[in-house]
Design a protein around this nucleic acid. Structure first.
Lengths: 334, 334
DNA sequence: CTGTTAGCGCATTCAT
DNA sequence: ATGAATGCGCTAACAG
């Protein structure tokens, strides 16, 4: 019950394995009736060429690109994956998937295993701060980072305009008349966290407003944390009259706190989310297209694959996916 | 700049390729100092064994399981993928990913390509109604369907308790005092759609209530469609006083229509979703664990892989993932 | 047009 | 403990 090989097909068709191989490849250098016989035999046997052997022989690559993400259950990353898969498909590549659950050690192992499998390229949403273990370029495997810039690594990357989006959203808070803007953010160590905080600060400074450290809370990881942090801000003697939240978890936590206390705080945040329009609160959200981020990452990678035969290595590239501001009204649609 | 092979390592270590190979495999039948030399050489060269060649030689499988889903951007399927990846990882398998965008032709091609790549097994969320093109079992590749049962195909599958969940939620509407329940559903062709409708009907019948066809609308594919359909129901001379929605899109559309009209309609639906608790409307939702569904599918597949060397084929298995009812209050948390 | 030879990188045999 | 020969399945290169 072993899978049939070209030999089996050739035998059945009464030709040499070579002829069978050629016929199957639609090579023109084979007689029409011979080809027909070979195809018939292949069909009867249910023959499938063994891609492994073929690739080995042809010295070709696997046509596999490794994708390593921190959390596939996060719709953001699954959309990134979707974009990558789409572009990969256009180029005849397949995606092999790994989830790290934000565990750097798992990431390291995954990348190692992918390398052994001879992936053609690697796209990573890195978990940790140091990326030296992702250096597959030495093996001739290009690497692209998604959503976070490389550190200790020369690799292309695609980023979101964290700074610009945060700045713009914060500006809107200010032009809306608010003067005491607070910040609910990620751990400072996270790159996106610091960029978004920088955007927040710059927007305030441009408006001649100093950043008030009392209004800055960081490191909330869950909606509950964020709600708690926001309540603390609202309980200050002179509470903030506006908040910029660095991600949707913080935005949602803030929303809960604000709705519960009935405070007059204008809310802005990074990341758009479903149902933002029905919360019944005015909302300024920074939106972007994760799928496009994935597509760009894949394009970058494929560019490297195509260029590999070509000239010298070009320096690492850095692409930025733009953000847009979405505003939602506070009145439920009637 | 070609990747180094065992030969290169052997040359450098001053041994034969065979000895190098053995040393690298940690075979005991090699002198300690020889092994050390081989390892040193391998390290200096940055040697990586070529999995392709190794697998070819060993006649082994690729250790790849194909995952084909209809829409990776759907959080449901990405969670399924996460569950599959987790179990696959435990068993040293990797997941190769394909997205069909609900296109049966693409699904057919993807499965074909996966088969050529000699995947060990296949998990599919099938797009269409007929699954005969998924019959890889003839090639010795087990197939597991996720979320939908096989038709024209002998394959294992893991389903959600569509019927039970719908029945239970509908019962809750009735015990809540409602008598005129409507149904907002999927196209009847969709298996989940018909099962959920069946659950709805049975619950009504058990309560001695006849299904009123005026209150049944199907085939809504977007939230907007669902809202429109719901508005039509609410505009009837004797509108329904309760609604069961077959998926979250319908639930959200119904929510919008109900909130906009202020109608007194109790709402139930299949699929839990983020923010369900802040909508300010009482909600009865059927929840389940997509990740668990993925894990079960992977376990089923791996069971087949393990059993392949063993006895005769056992008949197709069908697993059902349970649902739970979640109720959300109508009063915003204060 | 078709067959023969050879080898991709590795590891199982059988030698030594 | 090590090495030589051999072949996994496939296909370029060179015959014929």
């Amino acid at each position: 019950m072993n899978a049939p090989t070209v030999r089996d097909v050739a035998l059945r068709a009464g030709v040499s394995p070579m002829t069978a191989s050629r016929a199957l490849q639609l090579s023109s250098k084979v007689a029409a009736d011979t080809r027909a016989r070979v195809f018939a035999a292949a069909a009867e046997l249910g023959y499938r060429p063994n891609e492994l052997a073929r690739n080995l022989r042809l010295g070709r690559s696997t046509g596999l690109i490794g994708l390593v993400v921190t959390n596939l259950a996060n719709p953001f990353y699954s959309q990134v994956a979707l974009g990558i898969e789409a572009v990969a498909r256009e180029h005849g590549l397949k995606v092999i998937l790994g989830n790290t659950a934000e565990d750097v050690e798992r990431e390291r192992r995954l990348v190692e295993e992918f390398a052994l499998r001879r992936i053609d390229g690697l796209i990573v949403v890195p978990a940790g701060g140091d990326h030296s273990h992702l250096a597959l370029q030495k093996l001739g495997v290009p690497v692209v980072l998604a959503a976070r810039p490389p550190s200790n690594l020369a690799a292309d990357c695609v980023l979101v305009d964290d700074f610009g989006g945060a700045r713009e959203a914060t500006m809107r808070l200010i032009t809306g008349g608010r003067r005491r803007a607070g910040f609910l953010g990620l751990p400072a160590a996270a790159w996106t966290g610091s960029e978004r905080f920088r955007g927040f600060c710059v927007a305030l400074n441009e408006a001649g407003i100093a950043v008030d450290e009392r209004y800055v809370r960081r490191g909330q990881r869950t909606i509950e944390d964020a709600e708690k942090a926001c309540r603390e801000l609202l309980a200050l003697v002179e509470p903030p009259d506006a908040l910029f939240c660095a991600n949707s978890r913080n935005t949602l936590g803030a929303f809960r706190a604000i709705r519960a206390t009935g405070a007059d705080v204008e809310l802005a945040g990074f990341d758009d989310f479903e149902l933002a329009d029905v919360l019944g609160v005015p909302l300024i959200l920074v939106a972007y297209d994760p799928e496009e981020l994935g597509r760009e990452a894949a394009r970058l990678l494929i560019g490297r694959l195509d260029a590999k035969s070509g000239a010298a290595e070009s320096p690492p590239r850095r692409l930025v996916v733009p953000t847009t501001i979405r505003t939602y009204g506070g009145t439920p649609s009637r």
